[in-house]
């Protein structure tokens, strides 16, 4: 090996490989093995039973539903997070910016469980929102769909993962030279035109990175659905847990494999479309 850079990167690369790649391979391989009811373990015999079982018992719809929730959450986070990131980057002074970023992070000092639970107090039949709505006379019966519903799950997910979209967005906005925005204005563009034609295209890597962070985390979440979702609501991770409890490992691994393939596919396509890697290098297109 000639380059000292490569040599230096080698130990890190090995660790990443060991911690990340090896488990993935194990999951992939074991998902094709056969479950042996006699030993409650798996035998190295090729079988597609795990994959076949995905299509049973509404499992497929849980996967699609989870990815759908994750997608919606990520999209909402981008829509809310973009103006928030703009406020921090363009409007706030250095000190205010730091303060705002700290505020975005503080909720993370409490556990997921407690945060999800606190939404019950807000969204429940006797919660804050219903209280206000009734006080103001907007409704005379408490709204039921606020809690234990997809709505509640999405609120919980968005609240949990919003910061993950804000940080990559701020990072990408910092890479946009202020003179580019001035130049656009100089050439006659209004604020919205500059936003659409200059700022948005130049921050698409940040948008996608933020979207992806939230999407992956929301797709793997369990707490919000368990605490805020309806009785029948499930999530991929909950389903995998259930399957593992009955030690059907090939099925658990098959579900994981399918989800991983979908996620990797998304990253691959996104990287092609949005040049994700650009976010982390010097800004040359």
């Amino acid at each position: 090996m000639k380059s000292p850079g490569l040599l230096l990167a080698l130990p890190t690369a090995l660790i990443v490989l060991l911690l990340g790649f090896v488990p993935l391979i194990v999951i992939l391989v074991w998902s094709f093995w056969t479950w042996d009811p006699a030993t409650y373990w798996i035998r190295p015999e090729f079988s597609l039973a795990g994959y076949a079982a995905i299509l049973e018992a509404g499992r497929w719809s849980v996967i699609v539903g989870s990815l759908g929730k994750a997608f919606l959450t990520a999209a909402i986070c981008v829509v809310i997070g973009y103006p928030a990131a703009m406020a921090v980057h363009f409007l706030a002074s250095r000190r205010t910016a730091l303060l705002l970023m700290a505020l975005f992070t503080i909720p993370f000092f409490t556990s997921y469980m407690i945060r999800a639970f606190s939404w019950r107090l807000v969204l429940g039949r006797n919660g804050l929102i219903n209280g206000w709505l009734m006080d103001l006379g907007i409704v005379d019966q408490p709204l039921d769909w606020l809690l234990f519903s997809n709505f509640a799950v999405n609120v919980g997910l968005v609240a949990s993962y919003l910061p993950f979209v804000i940080f990559p967005l701020i990072l990408s906005m910092q890479r946009v030279e202020p003179s580019l925005l001035a130049a656009s204005q100089d050439l006659g563009a209004s604020f919205w035109r500059t936003f659409r034609s200059v700022l948005l295209p130049l921050t698409q890597a940040g948008i996608f990175a933020g979207f992806l962070f939230v999407f992956v985390m929301a797709a793997g979440s369990a707490t919000e659905v368990q605490m805020l979702g309806g009785a029948a609501a499930s999530m991929i991770s909950v389903m995998i847990n259930d399957v593992m409890r009955v030690v059907n490992f090939p099925l658990a691994f098959a579900i994981s494999t399918v989800v991983l393939i979908i996620l990797f596919g998304l990253i691959f396509i996104g990287n092609r479309l949005f040049k994700l890697t650009r976010l982390f290098e010097g800004f040359t297109w």
Binding site: E177, S179, A182, S184, W285
Partner: peptide
């Protein structure tokens, strides 16, 4: 600025990196 009949060549040029030469010139 966007309504003034003046145009600027900025010190750092401020060329739009996501546009070609032609798109840059055509922007205004």
């Amino acid at each position: 600025a966007n309504r003034r009949p003046s145009n600027t060549v900025f010190q750092d040029l401020a060329l739009f990196p996501h546009m070609t030469v032609g798109e840059n010139v055509a922007y205004g």
